[in-house]
Amino acid sequence: MLKRSHYITLGLVVLLALVVLNLPGQTAARLKLALGSLFLPLFGLAGSTQQVVGAAADAILPRRELVKQNAQLRQEEQRLRLQALQAAEIAGENARLRQLVGWRAQTPWKLKLAKVVLREPANWWRSIQIDLGSRDGLQVNLPVLTTEGLVGRVASVSLTRSQVVLLGDPNCKVAARVENETRDTGVISADGPLAAQLVRMDYLSRGAELKPAQRVFTSGEGGIFPKGIPIGQIVDVQPVDYGLRYEARVRLAANLNALEEVWVMFP
């Protein structure tokens, strides 16, 4: 039998939930940040535990392995130095040509490294939290990437942490361009709840010449993501809406399951 107190409790909880759900956006965001800051001591604990584990792993790594890794890194450094020299030459040439033609020069990317501190606990969103916040100059909508490619954008910022919505989340849509002769454009959006590495490229025109393994980059349209950041490669293409347009599945270049450090791109 239901008692009066049961009804009162039910009513109070429903009322509280409705009030919190209908709070103005800014108030809700502040309350969210305040509640999230309760976990700060655990962030520190988890970070120091990771450091201790990392240090222990470093300590038990054999010297032979370290020497081998050192040699590999030296080789890679030399290769990258050569590439950087070549790139500087090409960039100089590009700048001279742009000046001749009268095009606006591209601004170099300003990047800041951030550590991934938390992942999304709910199964119906894709987001991470990073250890940079407003005190580090972060703002909403800054692009986030790894050395492999685009990861997502900053969705909300607190003093010490920020939330990044990842590619494949319904709240992260990106204007993209395919690297082919027709330079087809479309919009990258979520594909489904299970495949974390696959996204959907939608709104491709009927005349698009799409093939698997073609590379996809940001198109620079939309105003959030600058042009030319790698997104991934086309897996397959299929007509939709009775063949009026095409839709492609794209395998992401960055491994979103193994994100530990990301770069935030500043304007």
């Binding site: 999304e120 606990p121 969103w125």
Partner: peptide, 28 residues
């Protein structure tokens, strides 16, 4: 019932604060 209510409210709000969920959606 007090513990049940406290758990629903506190755990729901904590969960939503670390998630992209709108705040309070897990409570009910």
């Amino acid at each position: 019932l007090t513990t049940v209510t406290l758990l629903a409210v506190c755990a729901g709000l904590w969960f939503d604060s670390l998630s992209a969920n709108p705040l309070g959606v897990t409570v009910l």
